[in-house]
Design a protein around this nucleic acid. Sequence first.
DNA 1: GTATGATTAAAACGACTGTTTGAATCGTTT
DNA 2: AAACGATTCAAACAGTCGTTTTAATCATAC
Lengths: 260, 260
Amino acid sequence: MRAATDFEMDLSQTPARLLDAAESLFAEHGVDGASMRQIAHKAGANLAACHYHFGSKEGLVRAVFQRRLSELNAARLAALSAYEAQAHPQTPKPHQILDAFFGTSLRFARQDSGGAVFMRLLSRSATDPVFFIRNFVAQESEGVIFRFKNALFNSLPEVPQDEIVWRFHFMLGAMSYALAGIDVLKVLAHIDVTPSELEGADEVLQVRLMAFLLGGLRAPLPEAELPVLAKRTRTVAAAKGKSAPRNSTNKRKADLAAAK
Amino acid sequence: MRAATDFEMDLSQTPARLLDAAESLFAEHGVDGASMRQIAHKAGANLAACHYHFGSKEGLVRAVFQRRLSELNAARLAALSAYEAQAHPQTPKPHQILDAFFGTSLRFARQDSGGAVFMRLLSRSATDPVFFIRNFVAQESEGVIFRFKNALFNSLPEVPQDEIVWRFHFMLGAMSYALAGIDVLKVLAHIDVTPSELEGADEVLQVRLMAFLLGGLRAPLPEAELPVLAKRTRTVAAAKGKSAPRNSTNKRKADLAAAK
DNA sequence: GTATGATTAAAACGACTGTTTGAATCGTTT
DNA sequence: AAACGATTCAAACAGTCGTTTTAATCATAC
């Protein structure tokens, strides 16, 4: 059996095979739903090898995420830096910033080596019931999010920063759902979408999602419709323009529309 | 102990207490992460009572979802019917259709009796690793989604139906993420958002999310940017307008902008 | 009162979980 | 060849899971 593994295992190193198996099973059944025994079996390794190489299941989870997340975040930052250098001394356009973040993510999901599987896992992790997972991926991407957040701030100086933060959040949700939620789409499209058809994000999804995100980011500001008696102003952080007539095209609206 | 329960348990019936406890624990730890023993303990009931009243854990899950999902979907349909009657013989505006679906959902999340808890559970269920859960909630809302989908079709006759389906999907993702993903927002906002502050969706979130969704729905169509060599045309379902010069404001764009 | 059906209680079932152990094996160095 | 650390192996650990079982208790009707 040992001699046979030499040719049928492309990556003969046990840790790499364990990472691949864990990534696949985590994406399919969830981190909690995939057992160490299943992972070891799929990797063709012994159960104890998991703990020998990664210490614990949590250590394995960390390794699975870090392996690809570091690469993805580096690609995101590189794309943003390229746009910034290209636009210097001005600031990149919003649609360029979105492409650097979300476009890079969707292209990452289309790369050969299991990028689609990992992106589905990553998308699910944001709403994972286990706190450790949510917290880990959030902190792992903290620096990247900070840079993109500021890039959007500079690119949309007229838009309140709170609004940008919220819309960044909404955009993350739209992308995550598109990459992770497939059964809902089956009902929506009323067809049987085979997983292989949506495995990862093809060009069609990418183009459509990017258009949607940009439209949402550039939507007219809703401040005029905020209820007059806000329960608390802390999360809103001091609305600057107090109120404006609702059905008149105010200045902010024009600013946003011209921001492309 | 039995006499004490009479005044401290508002709902003295065991099944209702079990449903409340299960709903809360499912939303917090996930369906798989919450055990029947935890649920029974939180409900002040015996472990066997869960199986006596609901047969199995799957039966309990079904009951938890059905209890509120039927009410939520009825409210969605009622809101849409009201808009349709108001606009008759014309069709409701897109922002009215969005309000009937997403606005009703967000208002449902703000109602007193555990609506916020259930909406977080419902939002997570769409990307749940367990197939049964994804499939169950998808089928349970199938009729509602069908009606809203057609309402959007009629309201946006110039927009390809495939595009509407995809954007409906994206909008669902943005809302689900906003209701379920809190740790990402903590990093985004770079503040410590206490759960109680975001418990459910307050008016601010609702107004901001609705503006974002409407902006995404009304975004310019990206068809002109589709790659010339699409790998498969099946998911796109026969692009009608073949191609158009990229940086020219085409007719569809104008249609969408005037669709509000 | 007793009998009857619905509900609750405590305990146990087998199967699975993550983790650990100690011996057996591997590849490499001396 | 001998010895060594690195790695793998089968087996068992204590614990939890969903579920079932059997007996006890409840409310209610005769």
